[in-house]
Design a protein around this nucleic acid. Structure first.
Lengths: 128, 128
DNA sequence: TTCCATGCAAATCGTTTGCATAAAC
DNA sequence: GTTTATGCAAACGATTTGCATGGAA
């Protein structure tokens, strides 16, 4: 991420200000509303860059497109596998202990981006 | 899943017997080796059905295609975001407590399929 | 003999890439 | 002036779908 660009600035702003967890397409539509000339590839390219630079997180979904999340502090996600909504929750996992156990058992050094759990949200449980 | 089919039987067998966590394409290739007439769509259709019926798990990846996992008992995954390998690990999360907290905070009723963590595996840490 | 599952090919979805132009430094 | 980012359109990988046929109950 060497050079500044107006488009990137706006993309960051959209992710930062959205309390839900938007898809690339949603972010594209919002940015496009302000600046009709932006292209989808600019959005995808910048989201990729921002993930690489640990400015935003990418959340991979069991169903549907990936979603993005501005990084403030590590937090956890509860993901509805019906509608795809992502909810934040607070819980103090025994992080250091888990990290230790995982690397011993698997060799994988886990990142501290929080933990994601899948389930069904309130709305989808009721309306289905 | 109403009617039996030879193809589905074989697909289940492949997922069941693979200790790693295969992609749909890998499963397709293995099944195809035994039965050259199977089509890719049959593999995808059956994997979908098997997930719906809680016979196998689908694992969504930060990068690359989804992977599948035969359900024996709940267990956790450590996923390498470089190479895409999925490793199993054992750790007794305080499951009931977490479930309670998540539903209170988010309304999401989480499934008991275990927890997935992202990180970088031993091999990728060394060779990169 | 009525469904359900299959194989095939085409369609779709989400994302990435090549290339010429435009903006940053 | 030299890079780096953009916009566009085409390519791409992974997955889904429509439809005619074959197999299961």
């Amino acid at each position: 991420m060497k050079n500044y660009s107006r488009q990137r600035e706006e993309i960051i702003k959209v992710v930062k200000e959205s309390c839900d967890h938007k898809t690339a397409e949603e972010i594209y539509m919002i940015v496009k509303a302000k600046d009709p000339a932006v292209s989808r590839s600019t959005v995808y390219r910048n989201l990729g860059l921002l993930v690489e630079n640990n400015i935003i997180n990418k959340i991979s979904m069991l169903v549907g497109p990936d979603r993005y999340d501005y990084i403030t502090k590590p937090h956890n996600h509860a993901i509805c596998t019906k509608c795809g909504k992502v909810f934040d929750f607070d819980y103090k996992f025994e992080y250091e202990k888990i990290k230790q156990i995982v690397i011993e058992q698997t060799g994988v050094e886990i990142s501290d981006k929080g933990i994601a759990l899948d389930g069904i949200c309130d709305f989808c449980r009721k309306n289905n």
